[in-house]
Amino acid sequence: MQPFIFDALPTRVVFGSGTLSQLKAEATRLGTTRALILTTPNQATTGMQVGEALGDLFGAVFSGAVMHTPTHVTEEALVALRQTGADLVVSIGGGSTIGLGKALALRTGVNQLVIPTTYAGSEMTPILGQTDDGLKTTVRNLAVLPETVIYDVDLTMSLPTALSATSGINAIAHAVEALYAKDRNPIISMIAEEGIRSLATSLPSIRAKSYDQDARKRALYGAWLCGYCLGSVGMALHHKLCHTLGGSFGLPHSETHTVILPHAVAYNSQAAPEAMSAISRAIGASDAANGLYDLISGLGADQALSLIGMPEDGIERAADIAVASPYWNPRPIEREALRDLIARAYVGKRPSL
């Protein structure tokens, strides 16, 4: 075994069913005097319900979170934070809301308590992706790592099956890239394979029966593990492409990850054989890239960038942006190969090995 370095992330996790009832106790544990609730516009009512659970610690709800964390929305939330005098932000929802909480923490140092309602996994990472003038950039800083995460399976029971699928594949992507990350280690690789397996077995069950509580538990557990992987080691081609496509063309986050993942895996297949073997074991397939493509197909998710809002004339631009400042990747980033990858993903073809 090769020497390695493992840094344990210090987030406190409360996992189970009905765990939202522990919200006020967890907020008090962080020394909270006033909390600002963050939600998307569609979850404003849920935000008020969470506020009621906080009792006298509740300050206000800011319901303006949107995907890709645009900086102008963060500026609006900063005003609400200062007006409320909050020393805690409670982010309930998926990656959009969690990203906004992280952006506030980066700028002010405010504590974060996160209540995920999807499988995005952002709550377990010290990574913030934010967009300014159509360009999405990422920051890795422990200052944006939430102090506490409350996983309540009950809050995911009504997550639509379509969103469950893409959100779950987004989580799988975190673990996939952890398996071939430059700074990978055997601990994270073990967690990554278990996370992929948990989601790959539970997502089809959720599609067949949305209110299958056991499947929902396994999916949320898998999302936690996959998110932990993303927070612990570096990212590579897949995440660079998704950040480029999402930030530059306004594509939906989890849907973009779902389309790109099999193609990014195929691109790296020859350069990362051990990772491919682990992925294949976890999903029960003979080939990692095509196995992921088939898994996604079975979930009924869109598999073409053209179906989620990508303009055809954006293929060349996306390739240019992705190679301008590439992440480390096990296979060198080649502009024409990358362009072909994006073109195949645009029409939804099978990944090319």
Rank of each mutant, 00 (worst) to 15 (best):
G309A: 01
M1R: 14
I187W: 10
W328M: 13
R107Q: 12
K24V: 14
A8Y: 12
S63P: 10
P351R: 02
P332Y: 01
L230T: 12
N185K: 07
D302Y: 09
P252Q: 08
Y293S: 15
R344Y: 11
A219M: 03
G250T: 00
T32Y: 07
E194A: 10
Y267M: 00
V79E: 12
Y327A: 08
L38P: 00
T108C: 15
D87I: 13
I296Y: 07
A181D: 04
T125I: 09
I172T: 14
A289N: 06
N42V: 15
L104K: 09
G55E: 07
A35D: 02
Q270H: 05
W224M: 07
E274H: 13
Y151S: 00
A162S: 14
S248A: 11
M276E: 08
S63E: 06
I283V: 12
P146G: 01
E177L: 11
L159V: 14
A215K: 07
A178R: 01
L9F: 12
E147V: 07
R339E: 05
S210Y: 08
R184C: 06
P3A: 12
I127H: 05
N290D: 15
G300T: 09
S352A: 13
L220R: 11
G31L: 05
Y327S: 15
T33N: 12
L54Q: 06
F58M: 13
A173P: 04
A324N: 13
H257C: 05
F15V: 12
F15H: 03
P332N: 03
G348M: 01
A162Y: 12
L104R: 10
N290H: 14
R140G: 04
H239W: 10
